[in-house]
Design a binder for these strands. Structure first.
Lengths: 233, 233
DNA sequence: CGCATGCTTCGACACGTATCGAAGCATTGG
DNA sequence: CCAATGCTTCGATACGTGTCGAAGCATGCG
């Protein structure tokens, strides 16, 4: 009556990490298909659909169907404003975040981002390459392959000279939505991922994009970058 | 990193009706003791304490201990801003509100607001008195007792002429926090409530402030105001 | 000093819901 | 027309958490 009856209802819609990831992915005001939002949130299509349905019912999103795609968009700038305002309140770290099921955890831990490695493991590998000086961050969201890096990749069994860069370059910085950091993408990232598959370091898990690191994989990661499984959990 | 990591955590804190009620009660920037906030939210002291602890940990509130009271206050104007911004997004009605346990439901259904009747039943009775023309809303959050009203109260067994008004008047409008409407308070409300107790229409329930309406009570309420239990659930 | 008050902590319970797998509906493309 | 893609719906499960009762800790009052 006098006050705002559904603050809690609106806040509830924003109170889920997956939904925040989706909303954040839409902060630029453009519309994106459900699948992309599912990917951004690191959840399956079914889960994403459920979330999107709620956001839609709550009036935070609007949808536009085009062919077999459904494009979601923020309902207006006021939604973006609310997100920014909430963000300004943090850190609020002490409150523990919502738990994840084992499957969702797996997905966040290691997965294929289309055709290259993402998730915590992907980030860790990218960090390792940067620390060793094999890659350096460059402009336009690219990575530059250093001479030392070329040598290392070649020694690993890749013929870097033969890899054709796309118009976006040889190695791109891809924003990892679940970790909010950059991981290695582009032709170099694809080749590296393929190599890890071929060597038996990683395996596709039954669930769609998730990836399992094999014992051999952990051994390799530790040898080259000092990455240990425990440290990533 | 680049974006806001804990939007969900902050939103989660606001995503509960009880917490919103508490935060709303603090919107004026003044500090209030835990008990008052518990009452505002329509929950018990234990529950309120739990909520306040979380809001405190999340940085939405600050606390100041004074004697055996603990005064809570909004952590800053940015918190108030966030609440207002969220309110601007509504209605968002379609999303169903959080469920309540049977006890909390009882409290919201009927309870004593210090010494007068509140909750849905209290609101319904007040509405009934207004509809019958026994009371009329007046300025300064007061109710005016009409001649017809005086006659009715007297017939019910109250000597209205003998009731001494306080400096706030004979009958006050008290904002019901759980229903967000006004119910009858002031000396007239107190006397009416006492009468209902004396007549066996309502009974104090074991839980603190909750009130049970007896079968006889429902009969009386239906006869005089057409209030039925079913309609209030 | 003991009792009452105000608030918090502990323990237990019930209910939502976030999640995924599988199936179902559309639409596009061969 | 059939297969593939994109998304949603259905069903089942696991896990938090909001809730209260009872107990514990302070503080204040008689």
């Amino acid at each position: 009556m006098t006050t705002q009856p559904n603050i809690a209802a609106v806040a509830f819609l924003i109170a889920d990490p997956a939904r925040v990831a989706m909303l954040s992915a839409l902060l630029d005001g453009r519309a994106r298909p459900a699948g992309e939002l599912a990917y951004a949130a690191g959840v399956t299509a079914q889960t994403a659909s459920s979330h999107l349905g709620k956001l839609l019912a709550g009036g935070l999103l609007v949808v536009e169907t085009e062919g077999r795609h459904r494009y979601y968009r923020l309902a207006g700038s006021h939604v973006a404003l609310a997100l920014e305002t909430l963000a300004s309140i943090g850190p609020a770290e002490p409150v523990r975040r919502k738990p994840l099921t084992r499957d969702a955890r797996k997905l966040r831990f290691a997965r294929c981002c289309y055709d290259h490695l993402a998730g915590r493991v992907g980030i860790a590998v990218t960090h390792g390459l940067l620390e060793k000086g094999f890659l350096v961050a460059a402009e336009k969201k690219r990575f530059e392959l250093t001479p030392a890096g070329a040598e290392w990749f070649d020694r690993m069994g890749m013929n870097t000279a033969s890899i054709r860069p796309t118009r976006y370059g040889l190695a791109r910085q891809c924003l990892d939505w679940t970790e909010r950091e950059h991981h290695l993408a582009g032709p170099l990232g694809v080749h590296l991922t393929n190599l890890l598959f071929a060597e038996g370091c990683i395996r596709r898990s039954p669930s769609s994009r998730a990836v399992d690191v094999t014992p051999k994989g952990w051994k390799v990661l530790k040898e080259h970058f000092g990455i240990q499984e425990q440290a990533l959990l």
